[in-house]
Amino acid sequence: MNLKQCVALLALTFTGVVFAQTAQESAIKKLIEPKLGQGVKVDSIIKTPYGGLYEVRVGSDILYTDEKAQYLFVGNVIDAKSGTNYTKARTDELSKIKFSDLPLESALKMVKGDGKRVIAVFEDPNCGYCKRFRKTLAGMDNITVYTFLYNILSEDSTVKSKNVWCSADRNKAWDDWMLNGKAPSAAPANCTTPNEKILALGQKLRVNGTPAIFFADGSRVPGAMDAKGLEEKFASLNSAK
Rank of each mutant, 00 (worst) to 15 (best):
L10N: 11
L10F: 12
L12E: 09
L12A: 14
L12S: 09
F14S: 13
F14I: 12
F14M: 11
T15H: 01
G16N: 14
V18C: 04
F19H: 04
A20F: 09
Q21N: 14
A23G: 03
A23S: 10
A23I: 09
Q24K: 13
E25D: 12
I28W: 04
K29W: 08
K29M: 14
L31K: 15
L31N: 10
L31A: 15
I32T: 04
I32S: 02
E33P: 07
E33G: 06
K35C: 08
L36F: 06
G37E: 10
G37I: 10
G39L: 07
G39T: 09
G39Q: 05
I45V: 14
I46E: 11
I46S: 09
K47W: 06
K47E: 10
K47R: 13
P49I: 08
G52P: 11
E55Q: 15
R57K: 15
R57I: 14
R57L: 13
G59R: 01
G59W: 03
S60Y: 13
D61S: 15
D61N: 15
D61G: 08
I62W: 10
Y64I: 10
Y64K: 10
Y64V: 09
T65Q: 09
T65W: 05
D66Q: 06
A69M: 01
A69Q: 03
A69N: 04
Q70Y: 09
Q70D: 14
Q70M: 11
Q70A: 08
Y71N: 11
Y71S: 08
Y71Q: 09
L72K: 00
L72I: 15
L72T: 09
F73P: 07
V74M: 11
I78V: 07
D79W: 03
D79S: 05
A80C: 05
A80S: 12
A80E: 07
K81L: 02
S82N: 08
G83V: 01
G83P: 00
T84V: 13
N85A: 04
N85H: 08
T87M: 08
T87D: 12
K88W: 08
A89D: 11
R90H: 13
L94G: 07
S95F: 03
S95C: 10
K96R: 15
K98S: 05
K98C: 00
F99G: 03
F99H: 01
D101A: 01
D101F: 04
P103C: 00
E105D: 15
E105N: 13
E105A: 14
A107N: 05
A107R: 01
K109G: 04
M110T: 12
M110G: 00
V111P: 04
V111L: 01
V111W: 05
G113S: 06
D114L: 04
V118Q: 07
I119W: 02
A120H: 05
E123M: 12
D124E: 05
